[in-house]
Amino acid sequence: MPDSTEQTKLIRQFLVGQLPEEQCQELEARIFAEPNFAEEVEIVEEELMRDYATGRLSRETSALFEEKYKHSLANRAELEYEKIFHQFISSKPPTSQRAPDTEPILPLITNPDAGVTLLRRKSRFRAFISKPATLAVAALLLVVLFVGLWTRFKFGPGGIDPALSARRMIEERLQSLNATAFTSGYKLLPVDLRPIERSEGQIPRIPLRTGETDRIIEFHLNITEEQRERYRALFVDDKRNELFALDDLPVETTQGGQEIKFLIPGEYLKPGDYEIELSYIDGSGNRRLISGYVFRVIEAS
């Protein structure tokens, strides 16, 4: 959790009323201008309320928090909602985590017959798994089953998860399109994007016509970070669903600075808001997110 970042610290100070008025107004202006920043403030506020409810705030911050949040009716309602939501969600463990509670413990205590039946079944099972030959056959069957399922569903377009298969097919086409850069016969639409933090609250709009299959968008992502070898661009929609990704993207030096260029057929983007998450793999093999680039696709008139 990025609690230690300067930005989170500043937002927390703002929320508990520790910042001078001038700085508060600056932050409020950012909240109105940058939807992503507004969202970040909402997240930090939720975390602050949670920390208060669980006694994780320092005495001083806790006092400031109470001063600000417990005297206004609207803020108290907000606190109350967070509390109720947390209590509710705590009573809703996912099915897999509820499994231990569903074991038939009661019948064993209250009904001796049920207990005996269970014990007999256990004994038969133990006898079954104690034979090495049976175990070896079972293990072999499992391996065959696993390999069969894996080869059937891992790559197939009609596999277990159609969405995943569709995504793979899109990504394969994108890799091939970008490797060959073959755009003859297509209408190219160049789009320059800046990282969210430097976009000054503006969302670039891309006009596309639904059903138009001969349009290719040529994205140019402006980057200011230290140059890495290869990048990955992941497209997510406004509900944070991952759509598709492009890997191994190189950096190009242009007159306007460093940029990453790639092609996306317009047919893959319906009207709506999108974000491209640019990341790279660091020396320890972990993926590091560098920046987000937002844009909006609108129906062309």
């Binding site: 929320l15 909240i31 109105f32 909402e42 600000k68 206004s72 009716l73 609207a74 803020n75």
Partner: peptide, 10 residues
């Protein structure tokens, strides 16, 4: 959120 954080009751 702006008004709530400015401690406006309603």
């Amino acid at each position: 959120n702006y008004f709530r954080r400015r401690e406006v009751a309603d």
